[in-house]
Design a binder for these strands. Structure first.
Lengths: 332, 332
DNA sequence: TTGAAAGCGCTAACAG
DNA sequence: CTGTTAGCGCTTTCAA
């Protein structure tokens, strides 16, 4: 068994309260006493038990992070942003993969709350009533990262997806395209089915181009699904001359499919993606992309959470980060 | 404040010991009592406090994971393997990024131990004396994943790196190459500076090819560093006709540099990488690669840890997983 | 099958 | 500046 605060107290000839004070950097301790205690701590190799501390203080300095899939490039960059800021504020992270499965998400929230985390960063797809209910019952703050709550009841950090897609598609239209394919993510997720799709439609509408359903496809973010969607596009009646793709990985699939069909990017077909992960430079031609500040979304979400956990006042709990479009060689 | 076990006991008209029994599925409870308690639990929305439980039982059902960088494709796949198995055995994971910084690694181990994790999965570069010391002092088991301890004192899960590289390079030699470049990772890491390098040298030696220092380069696993190393190769006296690259991301950089110089892969220069992450199919030509079973290394490491935590006996605590080489289009 | 009671290791008033 | 004393919410003997 390792030493407890009581052992240290005895070794140093003081009370455990005093030991607690020096461990916690309380200034109300005479320097000589502090020294005595510090030495006893060192001698005994004492290390405070965070679980006991958590029980007594009702703070665990641990936050829960629920993420769809840590092995995705997009989410792992987000996670890194979260973790860096957490570390900066002395928190540890309990990381859980949800696979965007609602039941699993609910269960994870409960487990995390049971573990007495001081807060939760949640990333997911659709926020349903059940989520909101859990969130509201929670005694600790929760913030959404790269995840929208359509009713805007839960603190969150995002970009303006609608506007971002609007800009990308408008750019394509303004450089002469009229048949613009859109490989979106699953439409049940509001970011896709609502905001991004609306941005696409608004761009078309503002340029008097009718919406053509055959130019809308849905993938699952994988390379293969981007490739397949593009294959479909290339074999149909109305073929796109430009494609907007909702993820870098799918966009690379799209580019390869186009090239496999003997066509050139960007000369025959232009491609713009969304995410701007490190992948954009790993393909030829390099990928033009909506620069979602992935790492920053995570970092800002965690920072927001720290404020909420400390009851600091925040100007707005719904933060919208700026985006931009990085043009590379998949567009002219 | 949420309900405690005591509230439930009162509500159900039993003692807290009985509540504890039903919560923990102890069979020694009369069915009618069990029912009464279950209802009280539901009525009060009672959720056990894992921190209190952890303090009393000295088990937190939480394990620590120290990883160099969760945003790397390689490590995030490993992490997913770890997390999946952890979930399967009802453990949660505290995830910490170390950036391979020794001091940070040591500090993280101590923090994790302070949080009373039931075990640790460690991924890193070089295992120094200090690490070993911390590990040995630890009262909970530790296993290394994709990380070697040269003295084989700590349980670990790896592949046979030496042999894998030997096979890849031998293949290159046997298909006619004599000038084979090697873009390795940092040499301080034994996996690189010792095992992989030895595999490369052994392949040369067995085919009577002298080792040429100018054909060995060191990168930092990034796309850019792979590109730069290759640029250097292409501009030097002895130019490689084939390159073995220690990571997929660097290998993609290498391929692009070769192509940018107007040469063809694999016709002018062949490339084989190591890792076999999802990236291998996202480049043209697709990448031949040593298939390190990334996800499995994580999964097996976590499985091994569960056995160690439960004091089950394990046949060998140094496990070496099989590897193979997946040939794709970057080789002839 | 159930209950009483003693901790687990620490924090946080409250006194002094 | 330091010590005393309750707990925090749960598990775990030990008895009954």
């Amino acid at each position: 068994m390792s030493a407890t605060i009581y052992d240290v107290a005895r070794e140093a000839g003081v009370s455990m309260a005093t030991v607690s004070r020096v461990v916690n950097g309380n200034p109300n301790v005479k320097p000589t006493t502090r020294k005595k205690v510090s030495e006893a701590i060192k001698r005994l190799g004492y290390r405070p038990n965070a679980v006991a501390r958590g029980l007594a203080s009702k703070k665990t300095t641990t936050v829960g992070v629920i993420i769809p899939d840590i092995s995705s490039v997009f989410f792992s960059e987000l996670a890194r942003g979260i973790e860096d800021i957490a570390t900066m504020y002395k928190y540890n992270i309990i990381l859980c993969n949800s696979d965007q499965n609602k039941d699993k998400e609910i269960r994870l929230i409960q487990t995390l709350l049971g573990k007495q985390v001081d807060g939760i960063v949640f990333m997911g797809g659709k926020i349903a009533e059940e989520h909101i209910e859990e969130f509201k019952q929670s005694s600790v703050p929760i913030v959404l990262a790269a995840t929208v709550d359509e009713q805007n009841q839960i603190p969150s950090v995002n970009i303006d997806y609608e506007q971002a897609v609007f800009e990308a598609v408008s750019h394509l239209i303004e450089t002469g395209h009229r048949e613009i394919g859109f490989i979106n993510g699953p439409l049940e997720v509001p970011i896709n089915g609502k905001y991004k799709l609306n941005g696409y439609k608004r761009a078309l509408a503002e340029h008097d181009i009718p919406f053509d359903e055959t130019l809308l496809s849905v993938g699952d973010y994988t390379y293969e699904s981007g490739k397949e969607a593009t294959e479909q596009f290339l074999n149909q009646e109305v073929k796109p001359t430009a494609i907007f793709v909702d993820s870098d990985e799918m966009a690379i699939g799209a580019i390869h499919e186009i090239q496999d069909e003997g066509k050139k990017v960007p000369n025959d077909i232009e491609v713009i993606s969304s995410e701007n992960t490190r992948l954009v430079q790993m393909v030829r031609p390099t990928l033009s992309s909506i620069a979602e500040p992935t790492y920053d979304i995570g970092a800002v979400a965690m920072r927001l959470l720290t404020k909420l956990m400390n009851n600091e006042k925040v100007e707005s709990s719904t933060v919208v980060l700026p985006h931009r479009i990085d043009f590379r060689n998949s567009t002219k």
